[in-house]
Amino acid sequence: MENLDRVISEIRGIETDAIDRGSRYRINPASRIIVCFLFLLSMLTFSVFNIIDTIPYAIIVILLTLLVNIPLSYIFRKTKYLLLFVFFIAAFNPLLDRRPAININGFIISYGWLSFFTIILRGYISVTAAMILILSSGFIPLCRGMEKLKIPKLLVTQLLFVYRYIIVLLEELAQIINSVKARGYGKNKFPVKLWSVFIAQLLIKTYSRAEMINYSMIARGYDGDIKTFSENKWQRSDTVFCIVSILIIGFLRFFRPFVFINNMF
């Protein structure tokens, strides 16, 4: 239950906080998506053993979190369980891949360890980048950005609908569960028989709701195609942002700052 409440308030927070976190910078969400995508893609083109070239990416996202006011503790909290799978897979590498990579006076660091750390670091970079993207734009502007990037309108409409009704359905579900708990059921997990009863109830209610929403749409002239006027014109600042970002990403990918610095000595 507390879990549901927390989820509800987090989802609410995304839109309201986005204004504090960076949508005031007025960069078109479409360009943010492109840059985020290229950023992560270029990171993944490095070898999995290449921790030295992955670190600059980490430094950049950490600095970005400062810019958009996301505390690092928030990120660690959110990713506590999510990176479990990643950790689990990566953990086998040091065990299985013992080829020596670095030798410091007899102390050998294997390729397995290098890949382990690179994978974990990439996991965190990826999660942080996603958070920066969503928290600095807000979900709804991000969907508008997706539309601009020619993602099928049906999918974008779908995303907006799901987002619109998540909180409504979570609250309905919370009510159903409260009614169960009010009758003495103490735990947060339910046997399938009980679980299926209230999920099915929620489903039936959802169908009624869908019918009414459809009526509401038809009553206002909906004919199968949700029309909107496109906002967020692409401005010069967006082009500048894109070019500068691509240059930085290119710098990281091809210039390889730490290697360069190292070669100087």
Binding site: F161, Y165, I166, V168, I226
Partner: peptide, 13 residues
């Protein structure tokens, strides 16, 4: 669109 949308929210919940 309404049905798909709300069912998406349903699955999420």
């Amino acid at each position: 669109a309404a049905l798909m949308g709300v069912l998406g929210a349903f699955v999420f919940a």
